[in-house]
Design a protein around this nucleic acid. Structure first.
Length: 262
DNA sequence: ATGATCTCCTGAGCGC
DNA sequence: TGCGCTCAGGAGATCA
């Protein structure tokens, strides 16, 4: 999403803001109407948050589970649950829709742009240079959580969701039930590599589109085809052939191979 | 302090 | 066709 947005949004001015006043999960900061007249300078990402840098502030976006940001022409029919429409200086629109309304939209002024409050307690981005095997190892040592829950904890590292947590643990041959602080020393590097490989490959494939995710131009992702365990309960493990199991952890589904993940 | 559970929503898919 | 149920890319609040 970031890559698509920076390509099609950077340098453009926001000429109009149509905020429908929906109750979203995460709202706050300045009124979104104050984006009007500002120019988009760039788009960054930390974990699952998009940070749209504006000429006079920062627009923070989280898509939650069902949020979508889509470019459209003014006449195009609108998706249901459209909450925000931005008019751009070249006539296009950028529309935010989100059926479940778990998304976050916040506008911050220049003063807060350097230190976004929402990210203050977040760990390093999983793909950042600063997230090294040593950092992962140190975090693992301080947690008794099951590895699966550990990977979902954005305060430890940011950017890994339910699908990629399952996939990374499968690649590293680690059981999702293993307590984080019992991870063998020799497994820290493989887990670190697995997390980053899964994320990189999925980004290259345009995301996963498990349900209805589409990117900024309405394209679904293709990483679904590369999933080894997620949503594959009862199917054979691509590595050892054992039957993939589904369990519940912290209220979320975990998929794993009970034979080759230890 | 830490980890598990609840909660905010709509929609899709299933069995009946 | 429709009803009731379960489940879904997240994460802050609350409970134990």
């Amino acid at each position: 999403m970031r890559r698509g947005l920076v390509q099609l949004l950077a340098g453009h001015r926001i000429d109009g803001v149509d905020w429908r006043g929906s109750k979203l999960r995460g709202l706050g900061g300045q009124p979104l109407g104050q984006m009007e007249g500002q120019r988009v300078v760039g788009v960054r990402r930390h974990g699952k948050f998009l940070l749209v840098d504006l000429s006079d502030g920062l627009w923070l976006v989280h898509l939650g589970m069902t949020g979508k940001l889509l470019f459209a022409e003014p006449g195009e029919p609108e998706r249901k649950h459209t909450h925000l429409v931005l008019d751009l200086d070249d006539g296009r629109q950028l529309r935010f829709s989100d059926p479940r309304r778990f998304g976050t939209l916040k506008l911050y002024g220049k003063d807060q742009a350097a230190a976004v409050p929402d990210l203050a307690h977040f760990g390093p981005d999983a793909l950042a240079r600063s997230f090294t095997p040593a950092v992962l190892g140190a975090e693992l040592a301080t947690s008794r959580s099951p590895l699966k829950s550990f990977l979902l904890d954005q305060t430890r590292l940011a950017g890994v969701g339910n699908i990629y947590a399952c996939e990374a643990l499968w690649r590293a041959r680690l059981s999702p039930r293993r307590a984080a602080n019992t991870t063998p020393a020799g497994k820290v590097k493989p887990l670190h590599a697995a997390i980053r490989a899964v994320l990189r490959e999925s980004i290259a494939a345009g995301g996963t589109s498990f349900n209805d995710y589409v990117d900024h131009i309405g394209q679904p992702g293709k990483f679904l085809l590369e999933l080894a365990v997620y949503d594959r309960e009862g199917k054979p493990c691509p590595r050892c052939g054992a039957t993939i199991k589904r369990i519940q952890q912290a209220g979320r589904s975990t998929f794993h191979c009970p034979r080759c993940q230890r």
